[in-house]
Design a protein around this nucleic acid. Structure first.
Length: 421
DNA sequence: TCTGGGGTCCTAGGACCC
DNA sequence: TCTGGGGTCCTAGGACCC
């Protein structure tokens, strides 16, 4: 059996841990740049706030209904996520961290020792006691059914946040209860298509002929179908395979027209990509850069373009990645547009042991490696960007808007929670 | 004024090879 | 009149996830 454990309204719950006054009132967390609503407390959901809504359209609404709004604080959320993981590890070593707020736990053999309902409740209690985050627990034989169980755990109050699907009767009930668009693996497109066919619930879906599912939804849809029927098609991925693509992209707080400012942003993103590559001990063979104007503003002239450069030697050196990213930027930059967003994406990723030296290109790979190691060490010790390239700029005119940011309570001594006596 | 960011997998079709 | 057969690799686009 697998358990899917996930944090309720995770980002909002993280904020509440350090600010209990937020309990019982509507709270939302926004995406980067204070753009969209991406986490909502139950009270905020009850007010009709939708996932992904642009925040600026709701500014008055927030004020009128006393909604507490937070800029996203990924340093805090990431650390709370690590803490949850530590608690899971006290239950089983076999864990897949699926996302920042969700993990699959392998519960093989547990049911011989105790009731799974009790075990799930124990996990829930311990996470809340040790980390302060309320979670839901769904337990079933396949990952997709565990997702369904988790969904029920949240929707049916009598379950107290823990739902086990053991026999076919329970599974059928759960499948009938679950709308097709709420099934893991079935998104907007497929659910629209299925609804036209009269398929409205997960139960309707599993009663379709297998051949139809394969033909219309490819082998991916077939996996979902079989998992819902209790056949294991997805296994626990305890070790994250190295990423095949790494992207760093950001919208600007204020639009940018000049090349100079675009360069500082692209250099910053390229630096982050190089850092991410080094963290997973990889090198990349290609660097792509894209720039785009504000697609929502129909009055302004629109332009978007991207360019990919193949590196002479695959690299994770900040100097190399930045150099070629800037080269790519200059290929596509056009004057006369107000840009909204830039991004750097590195691909052709391989482990750094596999680098093929280029005969005609002299770059001292070993020297770069040593230098990057020192830079990483300094930045780890003294803080991000203590050592950086000049092109990244000193003050950033285009930096993110984060006007309602909470403190980094758990990762920064200067921002630790203070108590008034 | 204001609308996020970061990933994965699969398929079809074209280029190319012998 | 008639124009093979069997592959691989790459890319763009579409689907999905949080």
């Amino acid at each position: 059996m697998y358990a899917l454990v996930d944090g309720n309204n995770f980002y909002v719950s993280c904020e509440r841990v350090f600010n209990p006054k937020l309990n019982g009132i509507p709270v939302v967390a926004l995406s980067n740049n204070d753009g969209c609503v991406i986490a909502r407390s139950q009270e905020a959901k009850d007010l009709g706030l939708k996932m992904g809504e642009p925040a600026f359209q709701r500014r008055n609404f927030f004020r009128e209904h006393n909604v507490h709004v937070f800029s996203s604080n990924y340093e805090l959320y990431g650390d709370m996520s690590r803490r949850m993981h530590q608690v899971f590890k006290t239950f089983t070593p076999n864990i897949e961290m699926y996302s920042i707020d969700e993990s699959f736990l392998d519960l093989t053999g547990i049911d011989r020792l105790e009731r799974l309902e009790d075990y799930g409740a124990k996990i829930k209690r311990k996470v809340f006691r040790d980390v302060g985050i309320p979670v839901g627990v769904g337990i079933a034989e396949t990952k997709t059914l565990a997702k369904i169980a988790n969904h029920l755990a949240k929707k049916i109050p009598q379950l107290n946040g823990v739902c086990v699907l053991r026999n076919q009767k329970q599974i059928d009930y759960a499948l009938k209860f679950t709308l097709i668009e709420d099934v893991w693996g079935i998104g907007r497109r497929y659910s629209a298509k299925l609804k036209i066919k009269g398929i409205n619930t997960a139960f309707d879906f599993v009663n379709l002929p297998e051949s139809w599912v394969l033909r219309e939804m490819t082998v991916v849809g077939l996996k979902t179908y079989q998992e819902l029927k209790g056949k294991k098609r997805l296994s626990l991925e305890e070790v994250r395979p190295p990423k095949k693509a790494i992207a760093t992209t950001r919208s600007f707080g204020r639009k940018v027209a000049d090349l100079k400012n675009l360069e500082t942003s692209v250099a910053t993103h390229a630096t982050r990509c190089a850092e991410k590559l080094r963290r997973q001990k990889s090198v990349a063979a290609y660097v792509s850069v894209f720039i785009i104007t504000d697609k929502f503003n129909e009055e302004e002239p629109q332009y978007n373009n991207s360019y990919t450069i193949s590196l002479p030697v695959p690299s994770n050196s900040q100097f190399e990645i930045v150099k070629y990213a800037l080269k790519a930027l200059r290929k596509i930059y056009l004057q006369g547009y107000k840009y909204k967003k830039t991004g750097v994406i590195v691909t052709g990723i391989m482990t750094d042991a596999d680098i093929q030296q280029d005969l005609f290109y002299e770059i001292d790979v070993e020297r770069h490696k040593r230098l990057m190691k020192q830079i990483d060490a300094l930045n780890r010790r003294y803080g991000k960007d203590t050592v950086k390239l000049g092109i990244m700029g000193m003050k950033k005119e285009w930096k993110l808007r984060r006007e309602m940011l909470s403190r980094r309570f758990t990762t920064n001594w200067d921002e630790i929670l203070t108590l008034k006596v």
